[in-house]
Design a protein around this nucleic acid. Structure first.
Lengths: 103, 103
DNA sequence: TCAATAGTTCAATTATATTGAACTATTGAA
DNA sequence: TTCAATAGTTCAATATAATTGAACTATTGA
């Protein structure tokens, strides 16, 4: 049984968030999640079909451990949501400012 | 004679800026440059004295190639300035938003 | 029961970061 | 003019992180 580790709000760091968003693929994942504004499976939010699923899994882990997404396994798939509220509490305005220029 | 390469404004990328600022040491360099609000030599802006100068040189190169600082060699030292105006033209508000939460 | 689905984990390879050592260029003093 | 000191760069070696294929786990639905 896979259990995911998520940082609490106070453990979200600036450089952690920046590192996570400093990758074009992860930025695209986050952008597609803001557009959907709902849970997305990993494959649904995949930035491109050519990426190996182990790489995709790695990127989701980075986003998760930076505190940017929350992942829950439901049935056979993972349901990922943006932790917009948490990030906005921790760093008000930051995420929107970055996403303003993403894509 | 060392000649430094700087990207033009339109070649500054979001992920480039985020990658450059996603490192705690580079973030401290940038913060100390905003506090000084003037040219700083590499060693003057060094985030800690224990860092090898080759590592420091590497960090300044990353910042330079991301378009965050401009470097000119004057005499024996490098004079580094933040390209605040350029970054603000390219991504209005982004740099201030990030620096708001730095350190 | 068993194949399909959705993802994780592992091990190997590739790429990036860190550092000491050797180098370059400039200055200032003897 | 020589030469040591200063301020950095570059190089080669090592250490750390990213990418991927292959094997694995867990869940569902036929």
């Amino acid at each position: 049984m896979v259990q995911f580790v998520h940082p609490s709000i106070e453990d979200i760091t600036l450089t952690g968030v920046l590192s996570a968003l400093a990758d074009p693929m992860r930025l695209r994942i986050v952008v597609s999640m803001t557009e959907k504004n709902d849970c997305m499976s990993c494959s649904e939010a995949a930035p491109c079909s050519s990426m190996a699923k182990s790489t995709l899994s790695h990127h989701f882990r980075i986003l998760r451990e930076a505190g940017i997404i929350r992942t829950v396994k439901v049935g056979v798939e993972n349901r990922n949501v943006l932790r917009s509220e948490d990030i906005n509490n921790r760093f008000p305005g930051l995420l929107n400012e970055i996403l303003k220029y993403a894509n």
